[in-house]
């Protein structure tokens, strides 16, 4: 069973071919560099036209790398929600067209569920599990009772975790995307400023805007502040807040594993905090490798495999 996975919900255009929900035949994500290589020009960062222009060449590249003919595909899956409609529609339409032409099933996939499905290979985790998705656009906590059973426990009430990283990076005059440079700066800190935690008390929900505002005002009131200590304090708060939220959920739901996803998981400080917590808690923690924590199409194909 070879599934074609398609992801175009935000900035990345991604295509993957995955066999039996576990064997990656090929996986391509169009970054700005790839687009330059394919088209030799600068493409506006957010143009949904970008998806349209690169989706076919990336698809052809994936087929070549997998060494299969188009007729070898057994089903097509595309992210259809949530995301920006103009971007989603490109992958959705393309996927439906391929499925129609090949007379094979088309499976719509939820982007956030797909992030959690990135934990489903090479083998399924033990269920029930908690799922944490933290990215530029999403911050959600799930109870995952099986490969097709996702229940939202909590979400952010304002900003997403990754968005907060980008905005704090900007006020610290760091480049975009803000996560990696902020982490680097924080690593040089000799101390860390204490900031509020981003969770909503006695709830599964997150709230990052209070933390964002606290950091902004701290910098305003202390213009001479050590930027590294601010970055470290901010990073501490995010990691501690996420760990506490998982702990809170873990104490209320008997789970056997913790699944994670989203670009914020690329932060090594958060990864190690989560690992320490999971060890003391005695639950299995799964963190996909960075390329599968970020937006990709393998996770879409894997999610769809369990829908068939």
């Amino acid at each position: 069973m070879i599934i074609l996975g398609i992801e175009s919900s935000c900035d990345e255009t991604a295509i993957a071919l995955v066999a039996d929900g576990e064997k990656i035949l090929s996986s391509e994500v169009a970054s700005q560099e790839d687009i330059h290589a394919l088209y030799g020009g600068v493409v506006p960062e957010l143009a949904s036209r970008q998806h349209l222009e690169v989706i076919v060449p990336i698809f052809q590249l994936c087929l070549r790398k997998a060494g299969i003919a188009i007729s070898g595909i057994n089903a097509v899956a595309a992210t259809t929600a949530p995301g920006l409609s103009g971007s989603l529609i490109v992958g959705d339409n393309f996927g439906r067209a391929v499925a129609l032409a090949l007379e094979i099933p088309f499976l719509p996939v939820n982007h956030i569920e797909a992030h959690l499905a990135a934990n489903f290979f090479p083998r399924l985790p033990d269920f029930p599990a908690l799922g944490l998705v933290v990215s530029g656009g999403h911050s959600s906590l799930f109870l995952v009772s099986g490969p097709n059973d996702f229940q939202v426990l909590g979400e952010t009430r304002d900003d997403a975790a990754g968005e907060t990283f980008d905005k704090i990076a900007r006020v610290l005059s760091l480049p975009y995307p803000g996560g990696p440079p902020l982490e680097k700066l924080a690593a040089t800190a000799e101390s860390a400023i204490r900031f509020p935690l981003p969770g909503v008390k006695n709830s599964y929900d997150f709230s990052f805007s209070g933390l964002k505002t606290a950091v902004i005002y701290y910098l305003k009131e202390n213009p001479e502040a050590d930027r590294a200590a601010v970055a470290a304090g901010f990073q501490n708060s995010v990691a501690e807040g996420l760990v506490r939220k998982l702990d809170y959920a873990c104490n209320r739901h008997k789970v056997r594993s913790i699944l994670t996803g989203g670009g914020v998981l690329a932060n090594n400080f958060l990864r190690s905090k989560l690992k320490i917590w999971a060890e003391t808690k005695g639950v299995e923690l799964r963190i996909p490798s960075i390329s599968f924590s970020l937006d990709n199409a393998v996770m879409v194909a894997v999610r769809a495999f369990y829908l068939l």
Partner: peptide
């Protein structure tokens, strides 16, 4: 109002 959150990433 609980449904309202920052659209910085998703634009809309």
């Amino acid at each position: 109002e609980k449904k309202v959150r920052s659209p910085s990433f998703v634009i809309l």
